[in-house]
Design a binder for these strands. Structure first.
Length: 426
RNA sequence: GGAGAGGUGGCCGAGUGGUCGAAGGCAGCCGCCUGCUAAGCGGUUGUGGGGGUAAAACUUCACCCAGGGUUCGAAUCCCUGCCUCUCCGCCA
């Protein structure tokens, strides 16, 4: 969430940010209205509390001396009752104010291109050679079914639409990709491997920004009064590792890498990507998460993106990096690069990674701070994350990019140690 | 699932109704002293909000797991929740 002081003192900046995102600015005036009422009341309550504290102090002294305190006692009771009333009202205002504040999106960084939607995203670089085929390249689901490594029909019997069953070399390929990516990030780029819970509570979801606004995108455990949710990305549990903590300056930066299943309801995407691995209710993803000092976060975003890109370079698949425009930027992000991987059958790039700097937005929600050596007070850390990469989509791209005319698929060099073979055959 | 114990500052640990933001110890920081891989002595060290200042100083409110309640007044009493630990059962 945003700093309420910023909303108060630099309202124009926030209005500008909302407009660039294409969001309604009405929420701001509502928030400010509540906030002003809250502050006014807070002032009154604090003054009254001060008076009460003085009175009760005197009562204490008198009682100790064994003297009569009944006259002050009456005053004290009266003011105390007033305070109780006003405190209730104050609590109401506080919760209203924070409810509103939680719905305001982050302010885009100055370097983010202004635009309405994904058509105005900007391609920064395209890397690798787009493969040419002497035949019509086939869709990955056809390849997967013909080689017997993907079974969508049985998955739908077991679970439903938008699920997949990996079998044999398919399951092995999924695992190979996971191991390859995790080994790369932990072994070469300094990330610490994490295996977190994939069920989290409401506080964790609120900390990273999925709640309260995007409840509809999540799977929720109905059978449990605690309100558990299935994670839509490892970002949630991993960022929340340090919720309500104050880190030491010398501990930063912290880099974590985690591979988890991700669960998404995909409500409202009924017509889209109904076939194949692109859009599933459950998929695996290697996620990179960073906690850094504010002055480093934009450099860290570049580095994070490079780390994710390296996976594709080594796999030898063409990709491009695009900068999301203001209208396409996620709720909590200040800046985002998407990495898109080449899909020959569709003849276009599809997203496999989204790398974002959230600056202090998540840190404020989740209360993740750090203390500079020799300085008083604390500051919010900056958090970042990015996929490094989505496994299912990468696997799909491997099948499509390395398919052969005879129906087999050549396994990229870097995966062979994990696969134990250089080819998947029909 | 059953039974019990407990949650206090960076850590350990006192405190069961009033002057407690909290004794004492450890750790950290500053200074003195000392000449040997350190000890002794003195001082100091939480977080958030409001006001105030150029910035400080200063001032005020809140915070002893969380949320309610009792009371003039709560770390201290009551209720609810969460978490941790021990034993039994069960389970991968």
């Amino acid at each position: 969430m945003l700093d309420i002081k910023l909303v108060r003192d630099k309202t124009d900046t926030v209005i500008d940010a909302l407009e660039k995102r294409g969001e309604d600015t009405a929420i701001l005036s509502k928030t400010l209205d509540i906030e002003n009422k809250r502050r006014d009341l807070l002032k009154i309550v604090e003054e009254q509390r001060e008076r009460r504290n003085k009175l009760t102090g005197e009562i204490g002294k008198l009682k100790k001396k064994g003297e009569d305190a009944s006259s002050i006692l009456e005053d004290a009771k009266k003011i105390s009752d007033e305070i109780t009333l006003k405190e209730h009202k104050l609590r109401e205002l506080e919760s209203l104010a924070s409810q509103e504040l939680l719905l305001i999106p982050n302010i885009p960084h100055d370097s983010v291109p202004v635009g309405r939607d994904e058509t105005e995203n900007i391609e920064l670089r395209a890397v690798g050679k787009i493969p040419e085929f002497a035949f019509d390249p086939r869709n990955h689901w056809d390849i997967g079914e013909d080689t017997g490594i993907l079974d969508f029909e049985r998955a739908s019997k077991i679970a439903g639409a938008r699920f997949v069953l990996y079998m044999g070399a398919g399951a092995r390929l999924e695992r190979a990709l996971i191991n390859f990516m995790l080994d790369l990030h932990t072994g070469e780029f300094g990330y610490t491997e994490i295996f977190p819970p994939v069920i989290v509570n409401k506080e964790a979801m609120t900390g990273t920004g999925q709640l309260p606004k995007f409840e509809n995108d999540l799977f929720k455990m109905e059978n449990d009064k605690k309100g558990f949710y299935l994670i839509p990305t490892a970002e949630v549990p991993v960022t929340n590792i340090h919720r309500n903590e104050i880190l030491n300056e010398e501990d930063l930066p912290v880099y974590y890498a985690a591979c988890t299943p991700c669960f998404r309801r995909e409500a409202g995407s009924y017509g889209k990507d109904t076939r194949g691995l692109i859009r599933q209710h459950q998929f695996n993803k290697v996620e990179l998460v960073k906690f850094v000092k504010p002055e480093d976060s934009y450099d860290e975003l570049e580095a994070l993106t490079k780390n994710a890109e390296e996976v594709l370079k080594r796999l030898g698949i063409a990709y491009r990096v695009v900068a999301l425009c203001t209208g396409d930027l996620g709720f909590a992000a200040a800046k985002t690069y998407d990495i898109e991987i080449w899909f020959p059958a569709q003849g276009k790039y599809r997203e496999v990674s989204s790398c974002s700097n959230f600056v202090d937005f998540q840190a404020r929600r989740a209360d993740i701070r750090f203390k500079r050596k020799g300085k008083k007070g604390t500051e919010f850390v900056h958090t970042l994350n990015g996929s490094g990469l989505a496994i299912g989509r990468t696997l799909a791209a491997v099948l499509e990019n390395f398919q052969q005319e005879d129906g087999s698929v050549i396994i990229p060099e870097v995966l062979r140690p994990f696969m134990g073979t250089d080819r998947i055959r029909p």
